[in-house]
Computed example of a mutant assay.
Amino acid sequence: MRVEIWSDIACPWCYVGKARFDKALAAFPHRDQVEVVHRSFELDPGRAKGDVQPVIAMLTKKYGMSAAQAQAGEDNLGAQAAAEGLEYRTRDRDHGSTFDMHRLLHLAKEHGRQDALIQVLYTANFAEERSVFTEGDERLVELAVAAGLDADDARGVLADPDAYAEEVRADEREAARLGASGVPFFVLDRTYGVSGAQPSEVFEQALAQAWGERSPLTLIDQGDADACGPEGCAVPQR
């Protein structure tokens, strides 16, 4: 079974939602037969690479709320994250473009390190004091290496603005086609969708339902036919 997760590194509910999904997946009896693929979704796709601002300032401008309201929301998110065992800095974080991070996630997918990289990026953005937006490409290279990627491979992607750019845009077009207007957005076997950072119990139910309704393989009996198996291949009789 394949689970695709559309998310953005700048999305706090994606950070929390991944922890809740991971908890459900860990308890799922068939977890070893579940492939998880992370898909790209930018909350702020038009933001320039060098356009960085404090999270509170971004929230007040984007949603028309007061600084006090924005801070209260961050405090609530911090409590939600803590309930899942996650660290969350409720103050002095910043916000910027995540496009390069998504491009690196596509590199990581080719090397089987996608889940490791997205977790490293989430932790760096939401829990650590250093910024993922203001220290330049070498900060992202450092995080890519922490996730098990080669430093030169990561630098090569960041130096080429076209590297994996179409893959990111394709993910975003697919999200729109599937009706995802926000993230996190979970799609199970292209049959069920789960929107938002739902409780772990909801993910447990979704996994069980999607697994239970998978179509079994139907064999068409066409009589004996030559084939190869664990014991070898059939010997032609004529």
Rank of each mutant, 00 (worst) to 15 (best):
Met1Ala: 09
Arg2Trp: 10
Glu4Ala: 09
Glu4His: 03
Trp6Leu: 04
Ser7Pro: 01
Ile9Thr: 15
Ile9Asn: 02
Cys11Ile: 03
Cys11Glu: 04
Cys11Gly: 06
Trp13Ser: 15
Trp13Ala: 15
Lys18Phe: 06
Ala19Ile: 06
Arg20Phe: 13
Asp22Cys: 07
Ala24Gln: 07
Leu25His: 07
Leu25Ala: 06
Pro29Gln: 05
His30Phe: 11
Asp32Pro: 11
Asp32Ile: 11
Asp32Met: 10
Gln33Met: 09
Gln33Trp: 05
Val34Tyr: 08
Val34Asp: 08
Val34Lys: 09
Phe41Arg: 07
Asp44Ile: 05
Arg47Met: 14
Asp51Val: 04
Val55Lys: 10
Ile56Lys: 08
Ile56Asp: 08
Ala57Phe: 09
Met58Lys: 11
Lys61Thr: 15
Lys61Gly: 11
Lys61Met: 11
Lys62Ile: 09
Gly64Asp: 07
Gly64Cys: 05
Ala68Met: 03
Ala68Glu: 15
Ala70Cys: 12
Gln71Thr: 14
Glu74Trp: 00
Glu74Ile: 00
Ala79Val: 07
Ala82Arg: 13
Ala83His: 10
Arg91Pro: 02
His95Gln: 06
Ser97Glu: 05
Ser97Ala: 13
Arg103Trp: 13
His106Met: 01
His106Gln: 09
Ala108Phe: 06
Glu110Asp: 11
Gly112Val: 09
Gly112Ala: 10
Arg113Pro: 00
Gln114Leu: 00
Ala116Cys: 08
Gln119Val: 07
Val120Thr: 15
Leu121Val: 06
Tyr122Met: 04
Tyr122Phe: 15
Thr123His: 12
Glu129Ala: 13
Glu129Cys: 01
Arg130Glu: 08
Glu135His: 08
Leu140Asn: 03
Val141Ser: 10
Glu142Gly: 03
Glu142Asp: 13
Ala146Leu: 14
Asp150Lys: 06
Ala151Lys: 03
Ala154Leu: 02
Leu158Trp: 07
Asp160Glu: 05
Asp160Asn: 14
Asp160Gln: 06
Asp160Ile: 06
Ala165Ser: 10
Glu166His: 00
Glu166Cys: 00
Arg169Trp: 02
Leu178Trp: 00
Val183Ile: 10
Pro184Cys: 00
Phe185Trp: 14
Phe185Cys: 04
Phe186Ser: 04
Phe186Pro: 04
Arg190Thr: 05
Val194Arg: 01
Gln198Phe: 09
Gln198Asn: 11
Gln198Ser: 10
Val202Ala: 15
Val202Ile: 15
Ala206Leu: 13
Leu207Lys: 09
Gln209Ile: 12
Gln209Val: 11
Ala210Leu: 03
Glu213Pro: 02
Arg214Asn: 04
Gly223Cys: 03
Asp224Asn: 10
Ala225His: 14
Ala225Gln: 12
Gly232Cys: 10
Cys233Lys: 11
